[in-house]
């Protein structure tokens, strides 16, 4: 079979238009205007197959042959078993069936790893980090929050003291009891809120204290936050979202800056789903702790209802993008 192509001798950039004869016995005869060259098919040093536009055969003497007779070259090399690995790869890459399977498989592996693997690894990592490291992580955060959106608490001292006493009762007998600290802050931006830092510091806002109609309701919130500290959620969350971002960037290849910008969205969605799992875990912890301390569980439900009202959340609505499980679902689990 005769096909046409371009020949380069590997010495100069001169392009020679040639006729190529591929014989059954494994000879590649190249005939140019002023020369002929004969190669054996075993002289082919490199014959990668990529796409359907052109094939470049590189011979052991550094000469190369370039042709758009892609199918003829591919089937000829197949006959003589040259470049089998590349042939297999090429077959995978252009078969719609295999590509679709690869896409589904890749997405499935990625999904499994991101939803199970990453949280499991982050958990092990968070629990093997020394407590001192975690303490130092929290300090900076509180300073930043204080600077930007929190003011000193306006509550009177007696009230704060009574909550502190309840807090001490609550953490009495817990593991790592000395880590827990309670702070009061006033914040217009946060509204009625409470959060826990990796160091074990739990911050409660004035609005939250005002919102509670029964002191046990504050206990419920504190128990939930103690749960976050106990399970090291903030550190795990930070580890998980950075690991996710790195993994997504690695998987999508050497993507340009614009597309890594785009991988921020899947990262965000996954991060929010991780947070929902943390909230459930902290709720379960709160339930146990309240039972242990003899605090009726309906206080948690009441407080949650009040909180979702104060933040204007419909308690049946749950979105893919919510960082907390639907309030209705959480309230139910305490009734």
């Amino acid at each position: 079979m005769a096909i046409s192509g371009q020949f380069y001798d590997g010495m100069t950039s001169a392009r020679h238009a040639v006729e190529i004869k591929l014989t059954e016995s494994g000879m590649i005869a190249i005939k140019g205007a002023e020369f002929t060259r004969n190669y054996r098919v075993t002289d082919v040093a490199d014959a990668q197959r990529l796409g359907g536009r052109v094939r470049i055969l590189r011979f052991r003497d550094n000469a190369s042959l370039e042709t758009d007779a892609v199918e003829a070259i591919d089937s000829y090399l197949d006959q003589h078993s040259i470049g089998r690995t590349h042939a297999a790869l090429h077959k995978l890459e252009r078969s719609l069936k295999y590509v679709a399977m690869a896409a589904v498989f890749t997405v499935a592996i990625a999904w499994l790893f991101l939803t199970w693997g990453v949280p499991a690894i982050a958990k092990v990592a968070a629990f093997s980090l020394p407590v001192e490291t975690q303490d130092s992580l929290g300090e900076g955060t509180l300073e930043v929050f204080d600077q930007y959106f929190m003011e000193p608490s306006q509550l009177d001292e007696a009230r704060r003291q009574s909550i502190r006493i309840r807090f001490t009762d609550l953490i009495e007998g817990l593991e790592e009891q000395s880590r827990y600290r309670l702070e009061f802050r006033d914040s217009e931006d946060l509204g009625a809120n409470a959060f826990a830092l990796p160091s074990g510091t739990i911050v409660v806002t004035d609005d939250l204290v005002e919102l509670a109609e029964d002191p046990h309701e504050i206990d419920a919130v504190l128990a939930h936050e103690i749960g976050h500290v106990h399970y090291r959620h903030s550190l795990r969350g930070a580890l998980q979202s950075s690991a996710t971002a790195v993994l997504l960037a690695l998987m999508s290849g050497d993507i340009a800056s614009m597309s890594s910008f785009a991988s921020a969205l899947p990262t965000l969605i996954l991060t929010l789903s991780y947070t929902r799992d943390f909230e459930r875990e902290a709720d379960d912890y709160a339930r146990q702790l309240m039972q242990q301390k003899g605090i009726p569980l309906h206080h948690f439900a009441n407080m949650l209802r009040r909180l979702s009202e104060s933040h204007g959340v419909d308690d049946t609505e749950t979105g893919f993008l919510d960082s907390h499980p639907a309030p209705g679902e959480r309230i139910q689990s305490f009734l």
Binding site: L50, G51, L89, L92, E93, R94, A103, S252, G253
Partner: peptide
């Protein structure tokens, strides 16, 4: 064409 190469690579 590039999609096939890219996804098999990943």
């Amino acid at each position: 064409e590039y999609f096939g190469i890219w996804i098999v690579n990943i």
